[in-house]
Design a protein around this nucleic acid. Structure first.
Lengths: 249, 249
DNA sequence: AAGTGGTCTAGACCACCCA
DNA sequence: GGGTGGTCTAGACCACTTC
């Protein structure tokens, strides 16, 4: 019992890293690497706090962060248990570029359009800018192994970001935004499907009428400004949306 | 400044509802109803705590829960701000039934198959049960306004739940599971698209080759057991997946 | 320099679960 | 009844932002 006993947990009080974070990282690593097996009960919080020389609230904060990630479950009167695996990561604001890179696909991007033009009505509504005002428009073709995977149309407000075509081909849009100091906060997404038009079919090497996976997304920064509106189509034989959801308690 | 001053916040110490929760509910209601407008800065935590007769950690817990919901943003050295709207709810483990009901569509369900049979290899892997062992299989057609919207195939382990056909037609599977005492914890989803087969087209009143939206989902309870595996197809002209994502800080 | 949130402590009592 | 997590207090010091 109390598998944390054999874990060599320790905190460094001279580190600038918060104590609760040091602890949660070590517990997460132990869960990842098998030191804490699924289903096992952690020892109680008070004893754990005493062993580490921490206060109980600090230990609770560490444990709570792992509960929020779905790695641990607490039951009153019972204890804290490691979730029976299969749970990996909750959904993040995913970037196709990052997804492909994580899958070892070495994505390539062709920037087809990179311009500034007047906002259409739909774009103006999505971004919260005046209709007819200037917005960036970027059209990109994303390829993996030389095969087209997705056709990405994005609109962005002007003045937020330099949209350099070379950078757009070297990385993803989200990384560009983050490195420009934009703090992404939330996004509203809609995923659907429809038949390819003749033009879409040609760009994606599909046939007219072939099923396409579609996504529309508006992304907001932490002040609530819309910073990006995307209208994307994917070849469903090459791409699907995979994600993990946590039920909020 | 400090718009919380005009808000008539109060807590009831005789209530069994936690104080931090009482406070977070009142703040959330104020955000919802316009008492706290987007962008406005809440007064500082210490003063708020003093005004309510609470300790600072309790007030922080209330505020933190709204930060987790994406309604507030904290900035060190600055203060706590109401997010500029447009943010509504983060993604939840959605039930098609609930989604339709929320949209005022009064969904109808036809149970086409409700049986127990040996698990196929794919079902066995998804549910973590032995191949060839007994599992429930449920096939349902979901309709709105008399039009078919989705064809739902679900497999469940036996022994968890009574699957009564009448109840399945009156409500959603998730509600049945919850009322059977199952605590849903997480789900792994995959959303894609493909062309309809002849059989699928007939069931959904589409034509062969028409684009379909597909979802596969495995749902886990809080012990990590797989409690449900679903393989669903949707008519993309009638249904799309809409959701809000929060970026984890 | 002043004000904010971020972290941390050392206690306390309660509600719930299980034997 | 004994042990668990859930809630709560009244302080303290620090890091960061803004002026």
């Amino acid at each position: 019992m109390d598998p944390t006993r054999s874990l060599d947990l320790r905190v460094d009080r001279s580190s600038p890293v918060p104590l609760y974070f040091q602890l949660s990282q070590q517990l997460e690593a132990a869960i990842e690497h098998g030191g804490l097996t699924p289903g096992s009960l952690l020892g109680n919080e008070i004893e754990l706090a005493a062993r580490l020389g921490l206060s109980r609230p600090t230990v609770r904060q560490a444990i709570q962060s792992l509960v929020d990630k779905g790695l641990l479950v607490r039951r009153r009167g019972v204890g804290t248990q490691v979730v029976h695996s299969q749970v990996k990561r909750p959904l993040e604001l995913s970037s196709l570029y990052d997804d492909l890179e994580a899958a070892g696909q070495r994505p390539a991007t062709k920037v087809l359009v990179n311009t500034v033009l007047p906002a259409s009505a739909a774009v103006a509504v999505a971004l919260g800018v005046p209709e007819g005002g200037d917005v960036h428009r970027v059209e990109r073709l994303r390829l993996a192994h030389g095969e087209p995977m997705a056709y990405l149309v994005n609109h962005l407000p002007t003045g937020l970001l330099d949209l350099d075509t070379e950078q757009l081909e070297a990385t993803g849009l989200y990384r560009l935004m983050r490195s420009a100091g934009i703090t992404l906060h939330s996004a509203r997404q809609s995923i659907g499907a429809r038949a390819a038009t003749a033009g879409e079919a040609e760009r994606l090497k599909e046939t007219e009428g072939a099923p396409l996976l579609t996504m529309q997304r508006t992304t907001f920064d932490d002040t609530g400004r819309a910073v990006e509106f995307g209208d994307h189509i994917y070849r469903p034989t090459r791409y699907s949306f995979e994600f993990q959801l946590l039920v909020r308690p």
